[in-house]
Design a protein around this nucleic acid. Structure first.
Length: 483
RNA sequence: CGGGGAGUGGCGCAGUGGUAGCGCACCUGCUUUGGGAGCAGGUGGUCGGGGGUUCGAGUCCCCCCUCCCCGACCA
């Protein structure tokens, strides 16, 4: 900084209000979450970003297993004709497929598709494994990578290859399968709200936004800090579409041969992009404590002897916190304290513990809160409990703040002018006729799309906000501009 | 695929025909350390690729490629 306070280049990040996209890209790169791969649309997830994914995975995996699902793994390569068996499914995915045509140096008789999702190969296997109602329900999940050729990639949000979890289940009845669809939707909601501190609106997709081949598609929609919507997880009831396409049949207890009802549901590394855009500020990332690779970082301060003393005490402090289940880290890099302060703020670490001669002399530690910016001193001996309490507080405050942000920008509207204005900087809850052509008109006029029909919306009848025809769905539809 | 930008050291940029430069980062040394440290010295570039014009091209001409942003498609 010079006397005028002008920033040197390469210091902070572009403010959100100046250019949200630039802010996002810079934060992802500067916080070392990810980098671009040599092939367009590919992403290298760096250790700090991958750790967030691992923490998210652990939370999600525990919920998946707790509801009776088992993990398995299916192949990356799928015969092209498998994919073709479900007409809508192929049609939906064919534009974004990567296809392998050469193997072992020879042109393949039949091209192999790199999975864009695994409904088809899992359907194929389900048909082999299921023959009796006693085999049902079959509840599987896999953690995998998938490839969808993206025209306009963005780190985490839309990459050509991404990581996710895909659940696939088969049931005897529509009721069971629908119940399963909602179980999955509920644990996505739970993970988003209570782990990522991301308020979400669960609801059903309109027919125009439905997954290719699904009978019903459910989603959790979140609002980013630029007021745009992000689909953070989806759950599909496939009806008997895939069962018929892949011949997934069973003999019922009454002796009749029936088609199964199947489901699939997924949450991906896109969720990390959602976390960045839900909580981040102009100083960089702000991570919810439950997903922060480091929940507390100790920065030792001092010169020569006093630095050694700080490091020694910091080391002991980190050990105590780790023993107490807190993810803590001592920053021993030989750069200035000020640099470290900014660096850890960029990386979104919830709590920074500054430990210098002044603190040590008084038996204190300075605790800086990433969310509020507050700095307080706490006695060395009670750091562990203070940190634990602060982490819980920050987790709660982050959800509260994000909820407030979303609520402030979401409103029920019933006339077209108000709708257009609302949707330009938030979400509109409006009645809609349910016609695809009308949805399309809304998109053309406002760039907003129907995000979902929120499950929580009360029953309501009336006229479509745009065309005035009788409303469909029996409740309001959530509209917003989406990622 | 449409519109708009940009390709020069790891990053950000300057360089309108005449010996490739600056800041940051990096390396070495010394001094430093409570909000992005200072000084000194140093390493590093087939200027996105190919062709052409010219005595001479980062610079002018032609072709191609890539990346970013905004739209259409999507977790």
């Amino acid at each position: 900084m010079d006397a005028a306070g002008k920033k040197k280049p390469d210091k902070g990040v572009t403010p959100q209000s100046t250019d949200f996209s630039a802010w996002y890209n810079e934060v992802v790169l500067r916080a070392e979450l990810a980098d671009r791969g040599p092939v367009k649309g590919t992403m290298v997830i760096r250790p700090y970003g991958y750790r967030i994914w691992e923490l998210l995975q652990a939370e999600l995996d525990a919920r998946i297993k707790a509801t009776g699902h088992q993990n398995a793994y299916f192949p990356l390569l799928i015969p092209e004709n498998h994919l073709r068996r479900e007409a809508e499914h192929v049609e939906g995915f064919s534009p974004e497929l990567a296809v392998v045509t050469i193997g072992g140096g020879k042109k393949l008789d039949e091209p192999l598709v790199v999975r864009p999702t695994s409904e088809s190969i899992i359907g194929e296997m389900f048909s082999r494994w299921i023959s009796s109602h006693r085999d049902l329900p079959l509840l599987l999940n896999q953690w995998a990578n998938v490839v969808r050729w993206e025209l306009r990639p963005r780190l985490f949000l839309r990459t050509t290859e991404f990581l996710w979890q895909e659940g696939h289940t088969a049931h005897t009845s529509e009721d069971d399968a629908m119940g399963e669809t909602m179980v999955a939707l509920r644990f996505y909601e739970d993970v988003a709200r209570n782990v990522a501190a991301m308020p979400v609106i669960p609801g059903e997709k309109t027919p125009g936004e439905r997954f290719a081949g699904a009978a019903r598609t459910f989603t959790i929609e979140a609002m980013m800090r630029d007021s745009r919507a992000l689909q953070a997880g989806t759950s599909h009831y496939m009806g008997q579409n895939f069962a018929k396409a892949f011949d997934i049949r069973y003999t019922s207890d009454a002796g009749a041969v029936e088609y199964c009802h199947t489901t699939s549901w997924g949450m991906s590394t896109r969720m990390i992009g959602g976390i960045i855009m839900t909580h981040g500020d102009d100083k960089g990332l702000v991570l919810p404590p439950k997903l922060a690779p480091y929940q507390a970082v100790v920065v030792p301060i001092g010169r020569a002897d006093s630095l050694e003393a700080s490091v020694r005490e910091g080391d002991a402090l980190v050990s105590r916190m780790e023993a107490g289940g807190i993810r803590a880290h001592l920053d021993r890099r030989s750069v200035s304290p000020g640099f470290k302060f900014n660096d850890w703020e960029m990386r979104g670490v919830p709590l920074r513990l500054e430990l210098g001669p002044r603190d040590l002399a008084a038996g204190l530690v300075t605790v800086a809160n990433r969310l509020t910016g507050d700095k307080d001193q706490v006695p060395l001996e009670s750091v562990e409990s203070a940190v634990r309490n602060l982490l819980a507080e920050i987790q709660d405050e982050m959800l509260a703040a994000a909820t407030q942000f979303q609520d402030d920008r979401t409103s029920s509207v019933s006339d077209w002018t108000t709708f257009a204005a609302r949707v330009s900087s938030g979400f509109a809850l409006a009645l809609h006729c349910g016609e695809r052509a009308c949805e399309e008109q809304i998109k053309v006029a406002t760039t907003a799309t129907a995000r979902c029909v929120p499950l929580s919306a009360p029953a309501e009848d009336g006229q479509c906000v745009r065309c005035g025809n009788p409303a469909a769905y029996g409740r309001r539809v959530l509209f917003g501009r989406a990622y």
